[in-house]
Structure formats: structure tokens, C-alpha cells
Design a binder for these strands. Structure first.
Lengths: 340, 340
DNA sequence: TTGTACGCGTTATCAA
DNA sequence: TTGATAACGCGTACAA
């Protein structure tokens, strides 16, 4: 079986008996195209099954309608919702999204971004910016960039995220209100700005409540299940174990709960646990994790909106959007003061 | 601050004192470019920070190096691993991936695919093909297509998936071996070919074990948590409730477990539950779901490999790859025969 | 409403 | 063997 060559705008023009230029005008709904011409053109388009070649258009217009989305790993349950928000808003505006996993490898990230720029993308959304070095070189690129979630270089790039300090404070305050005094913290990645903010919030909340805790109430879990698991095991072996643990994300909170289960420590009776993110799994019947909701889908959408302002040249100054978070109280921290 | 215009191949040629054509040859590592010329060219490339414009290249070569990936919703935990496999293999081969969420809406799917084809993608990977109508019109498109996971039209398109019948049989046989006789089934989407296969496997396993069950041991859960939850509630109200339930995916299994928890029915003591997919969450300490592992990452990779054979024109006939599944025994179905 | 130049890299042709 | 010239891919933009 043979396939006919794809029809081009010339084929349409020939069939409609007009010039290619007019076909272009008609298809792009420009004015000054007569009704009859339009009819003939659309008839030809339909008959030939013509589809405009966006590559050619992109070359001429110097604009591809493609946005690059860079994240460390789509398999990490934190990202799909952001990706969803980005893709949905982008499509609404006639843009497509190229997805790139960096594996948190700066070299790979650099190389992926090079490819994206070669592909003449109209904008770049980066969710995995760890250090300033990851994004520093991008300042020189003449390509709109929006950072999501992490902003290692505040004021340099457009940004969508949350207020990590106050969000963490909200979570810890909840534990304090429940009567907890021995509140541990499982930190994410020490180097990450988000992680740092949550640590700050934890400390501030304790300070304001005049609760003074030894430094060894803080563990690092690297944002991963196993990390939370190990951190919790270690906390349970503390000479004066905590009655509550605030985890810098839900994955580590799940790990912490797993560790409790392993050691026959009851949650929330023996130890209360609060997470951060509100992944879907947190609401599961047999998880019911109290956590801080991050509006990830919304973050993705807003990121695209910010990007559009840049693409359309509407804005020159850097803009930061801080979205509200929300404490979602479920069952992993019980209801009231437990005996000390 | 002003940005200089992006350098083009002409700028490089001028700086290196050669023709643009020679620059192209050098950058593409074609023969017949002298060493000195190469040196001058690469020096100029570096100095100017030149990056080839892939859009222009794509136009000329009639090949964009982009693969379209169509799925119903990246937020559905089933897909990210497939997407990961696709993206990783694609990048390895110099391809990029455009991601599209269809929301299981045939109209949106059609429109997204139209856009992708307009973008001159080199291939299309579709994971959300429900009915034959979803893909039927694609036969005419001269674009390599690989179906993943669902194949409503066996033999028409390249396909990567699993053997649903034998995989389901394996799961049900496990329950039978444990001594269960009253085994219910929570089906996914009746119309989906995968769902149908799992139902077939369930029936075959029972038949071979000479277990005859009333038809009302089968419920539909639409592959969703709530569906599994409701289905389980209804099964628990059965006059002769099942001692085991096989769920056509993990989400429904989680829902079923949730329902049991709600009704103080113990898993696995009172009822054994087996899922399908092996999402990461199934291995969580306080889930420990027995399930059938689908090699989703591998499916994504293989899909790209099949696609490459088509793109390179190596193969004309349709190829189907069936990947092996594996029963992962955890804790939701106990160890031995429970009293009947 | 149309002719034509243009965007930019690739490739066929031709000259040295 | 090495390199330059010019045509080409296809839709858009501007002058006519």
C-alpha cells in the first residue's frame, strides 16, 4: 500500500484556485479574505485532509508553541500533578509540553536544557532547581523561565511556590496545640531551599511556644520513604523519644509510619505524625495522614500563566507567586493531649 | 540589557571563514571536511555559543525527533512509570517526548493527536486506546504508532503489553492454592480489553479448579479507589460473602481494603485481597498488598524500541511484544486456608 | 489578493 | 578530497 505525500499549503491553493498566501490568511482567520475564497479553501482543506505543518510555521514565526518542563523524575509522586497543571493550561493556550526527567543530575539537566533550547522552545519551566548553579547559566539565555517549587535564587527568575516557613509553622503549631512538647523533625534535603524553609518554620514554631529541644531531635530523610523509615527508627531509640514527628514531606511520613508499625509503636496513640505535600495517598483509608496541602496542580497552571506574560512581552520585572497551603487534619496525630 | 540575536549557521560560517554548508557537514560529522576547517568551525561554534536550530533541521529533514505520548492522565499512578520508560529510551536515542493527557475523552484525544501530527512528530505512543474507534482513523496516517497496555485492535498496530488472561489466572490460582473457594472479582472497566482479559483469567482459573460461583460475585469498580470501595462494601453485604477478592487493579484493591477497614473486616484474616499492577504504594509497610507486577517502565522502553524499527523503516509487519508479569506475594492474602 | 522574500539548516550539484 | 553555491522544505509577512 502506498501513502500519498502529505498535502502542503500549495496543494490546497491549487485545488481552491487561489494563492498559498491566501490559504494561509484564511486558515489563520485573518481579515480581508472573501467569503467565497474561504469556502473554496476550507473545502479543499477538508478534501485533501490538509494539516498545516507547524514546523514550517515555527521556523518562520520564530516561535514553536512548545514549553519545556524539567523535573527530576515523573515517577516521584510529587510531580505528576504539577505536570498535569502545566500541560492542561498549556494546551488551553495552544502550547505543547516536552517532558524531561533529570534524575537530579546537574549534567543531565544541563544537557536536556541545551536540547530544549535547540528545539527553540518558547519557555522553560523548571521544578528541580536545587542550587543556584543549576540555573545560573540560564540568566544569559533569552528564553522565558519559570521556577516552580524551588527557588535557589530568589528575585532572579519568575517563581511559583509556597511559603515553606509559615506552612511548616502551621503544622508544628497544630502539634503544639494538641499538647505535644517533644516534637521531632525529619528534614528533607539539607541543601534544598524548600527543605530549609520548613526547618526554619519548625524552629520558629517551637521558639514561639517556648519549647526548647535538643538538636538531636532533627533527622535527615532525603525526602524518601527509606529515609523517613530510618530516621524514625533512630528517633524511637532516642533516650527520650518524641511524642510527635513533623516530616518535611509525605513520603518520609509514610516511612516514619512504616517504622512505627515495624516497632509496634502506635500512630497516633504513641506518636503523632504530620507530613507535608498531601499526596493522594495521604487520604487513603488506612493511611489518613495529617499533612500540609501544597496546591501542586495550581502551581503548574500558574507557572504557565507567568510564562505567557513573558512570552507576550507584557512583563519585564521578575514576579513571584506564593500560593496558600492548608493544614489537612486526618488521623495520624490524634485529637488531644497525650500523657507525657 | 540587550540580548544579541541568536547566532545562526551563517554567523559561524563567517567567523570560521567557510561556507554554511561546510559548517553543517562538520557539525554532523560527515566525511570530507578537513581537519583545519573543523577546528576553525568548532572554535567559532564555541565562541558564538552557537546551537543548531532543530526546527530548521526538522523542516528540511522531514523528521523532528519528537515522539508523542498519549495517556489519559499522568496523575493516574499507573502512567508515570510508562512515561519514564518512554522518555528515557527516547532521550537515549536523541528523541524528545511531548506529553498529552486525554482525560479519557475521545474528542480531546482526537484533537491532541491532530496537533501532534501537525507538529510532524516522528511517532505516536498511545496508552489509552479504549475502543477500536479511538485508533481506527490512525490507520490512514503515515505515522508509526505503538499501542501500549491496551490493544483494542490486535494485529493492526504494534503493541507492547502483558498477557492479562494468564496473569489474572496466576493471581486467582494463588488464592485457590491458599484454600479459598469463595473468590470474588472486582472488575475494572467492562469495555476495556485489558479488563476483559483479567475477567477471562479469573473465570478460567475458577473453572479449572472446578469452583462454581454465582455471577453476583463480580462487581465493577471502574479501576478507581471509590469503585473498589463501593464494590467491596456491596460484597461484604452478600448473603454468603467471599473469603477472597481479586481486584483488576491496585487502586480498587486499596479501595476494597479501605472498605474492609471501615467495616472492621480484617485483611487478610477475614478476607484476602489481591490486586493488579504493583504500584509502588503496594509495597508500603502498612499496605503490603499482594499483587501482579506489570513491568510498566519496561513497557515504555520497549514501545520506543518498536517505534524505532518503524522510523528506520526496518520493519513493515505488525509486531506484538508481551512482557512477563510476576505475582508479588505480600500480606493481604495471608498464608493458608482459613476456616470456611 | 498575490508574488516574493524569508526563516535556517541540509543536501545535491558542481568546481577546484 | 575539499569546499562553495544554490535549491529546497513549507508556511508567513510584506509590498505591490
Amino acid at each position: 500500500m502506498k501513502f500519498k505525500k502529505k498535502p502542503s499549503i500549495k496543494d490546497v491553493a491549487k485545488m481552491a484556485g487561489v494563492s498559498p498566501a491566501l490559504v494561509s490568511l484564511a486558515l489563520n482567520e485573518k481579515p480581508y479574505v472573501s467569503k467565497e475564497a474561504k469556502e473554496k479553501i476550507f473545502a479543499a482543506v477538508k478534501k485533501l485532509g490538509y494539516r498545516p505543518n507547524i514546523v514550517a510555521r515555527s521556523l518562520r514565526k520564530k516561535s514553536t508553541g512548545i514549553i519545556g518542563l524539567v523535573l527530576s523524575d515523573i515517577t516521584n509522586p510529587f510531580y505528576p500533578e504539577i505536570a498535569r497543571g502545566v500541560e492542561e493550561k498549556a494546551r488551553e493556550l495552544g502550547f505543547s509540553v516536552i517532558l524531561c526527567n533529570t534524575d537530579a543530575d546537574p549534567f543531565r539537566e544541563k544537557s536536556l536544557i541545551d536540547i530544549l533550547l535547540s528545539r527553540q522552545i518558547d519557555g522553560l519551566i523548571i521544578t528541580s532547581a536545587r542550587s543556584d548553579q543549576d540555573v545560573y547559566h540560564l540568566v544569559r539565555e533569552n528564553c522565558p523561565i519559570v521556577l516552580v517549587n524551588r527557588d535557589p535564587f530568589p528575585g532572579r527568575f519568575d517563581f511559583v511556590g509556597i511559603d515553606n516557613i509559615s506552612s511548616a509553622k502551621m503544622a508544628v503549631n497544630h502539634l503544639i496545640k494538641l499538647g505535644h512538647k517533644k516534637i521531632a523533625f525529619i528534614e528533607g534535603e539539607p541543601a534544598s531551599p524548600a527543605s530549609f524553609g520548613r526547618y526554619e518554620g519548625y524552629k520558629e514554631a517551637l521558639k514561639e511556644a517556648k519549647i526548647f529541644l535538643p538538636e538531636d531531635y532533627v533527622r535527615i530523610g532525603y525526602l524518601r520513604y527509606e529515609g523517613g523509615y530510618k530516621a524514625m527508627l533512630s528517633l524511637l531509640e532516642h533516650p527520650s523519644p518524641p511524642t510527635a514527628v513533623f516530616c518535611a514531606n509525605d513520603m518520609m511520613a509514610l516511612g516514619a509510619i512504616g517504622a512505627c508499625l515495624k516497632k509496634d509503636v502506635r500512630v497516633p496513640e504513641d506518636v503523632a505524625i504530620v507530613g507535608f505535600d498531601d499526596m493522594w495517598i495521604a487520604s487513603l483509608e488506612n493511611i489518613q495522614l495529617t499533612t500540609v496541602r501544597q496546591p501542586r496542580y495550581e502551581m503548574g497552571k500558574k507557572a504557565v500563566e507567568l510564562m505567557m506574560e513573558r512570552i507576550k512581552g507584557k512583563r519585564k520585572e521578575v514576579k513571584r507567586i506564593i500560593l496558600p497551603t492548608k493544614l489537612v487534619v486526618r488521623k495520624t496525630c490524634g485529637k488531644f493531649l497525650k500523657g507525657d
